[in-house]
Design a protein around this nucleic acid. Structure first.
Lengths: 148, 148
DNA sequence: CAGTTTATATAGAACGTGTATATAGTTGCT
DNA sequence: AGCAACTATATACACGTTCTATATAAACTG
């Protein structure tokens, strides 16, 4: 194993961004997905964490608050989420996933999995482990990049 | 090491898409990037492979030909690429990166690296190796998804 | 050489996203 | 209590992104 030079680390950054985005876009498109990846991530966040505010969602996904308002509007028009009054703060509304929203996310996951599965199945256990660990690491890295 | 159930593999697909897209978007935005990741990938493809046709670029990046025409138009307006006649086929034009285009890609890579480096530096060699291997695997997976 | 196919461009529509600003509600200080 | 500053969300506007459908021009085919 080569030890990591600063240049190696910097190349790795660019490759992760480039390949990560291409893979995500390709897998989503080829699964016939209509909705944006942000919209799907919003549903996923809400299911995992419970109701969240617009601002909180925007911050997590690194888009501006107006962009998140628009995303939530579209999801609400399609009945996938609801706005609910926040009892603690009348300025705020919390976003709540509906059953239809949960179903739509699940449907996406199944379509995506069906499309990607054949290719993952060809990989060895070691490569699958690499990808599983990488998914966690990428999530952590995104969190840290978001912090400041 | 757990052996991989079908469900585990399917979950992995969804996680890779979700985390991959979030990481790429976050890293790009937080680096103050203006240009789309697709535009950057176009520059990268051209530098790596030499001049390519619009249609070829569209196929590689899994967007439609009109969308790629628009992307190339914007890059051309900014002087980052040029259209050149394809001597072998007068219908087609090949896209060629200019020096300014190469410089812009390099600048993006430096900005992104500077932003991500501190977080990568905290990782151990094993995790860096995981990420490096994962970048390759994601690239291969995207290629394979693209094939059919 | 006429008909079909291919490569790119254009038109039109909807979504995604940013900046700037408006509106309404909350908090802190006196 | 009252006012100033702050905060959460919404709205307005502009531009980029991406799709489908179609037009245009060139190449291939029999």
């Amino acid at each position: 194993m080569v030890s990591w030079s600063p240049e190696g680390i910097d190349q790795l950054s660019a490759r992760l961004i480039s390949q990560g985005s291409r893979f995500a876009r390709t897998a989503s498109r080829k699964s016939g997905e209509q909705r944006s990846l942000i919209a799907l991530r919003v549903l996923s966040n809400l299911l995992q964490e419970g109701d969240l505010r617009i601002g909180e969602l925007a911050q997590r996904e690194t888009i501006t608050q107006p962009a998140m308002t628009a995303t939530v509007n579209r999801l609400e028009e399609d009945g996938l989420v609801e706005r609910r009054a926040d009892p603690a703060d009348a300025r705020a509304a919390v976003v709540h996933v509906t059953q239809a929203g949960a179903a739509e996310l699940e449907a996406f996951r199944m379509r995506a999995a069906a499309r990607v599965r054949p290719h993952l199945e060809r990989l060895g256990e070691d490569d699958l482990a690499v990808l599983a660990r990488a998914a966690d690491l990428l999530g952590d890295l995104a969190d840290r990049l978001n912090e400041r």
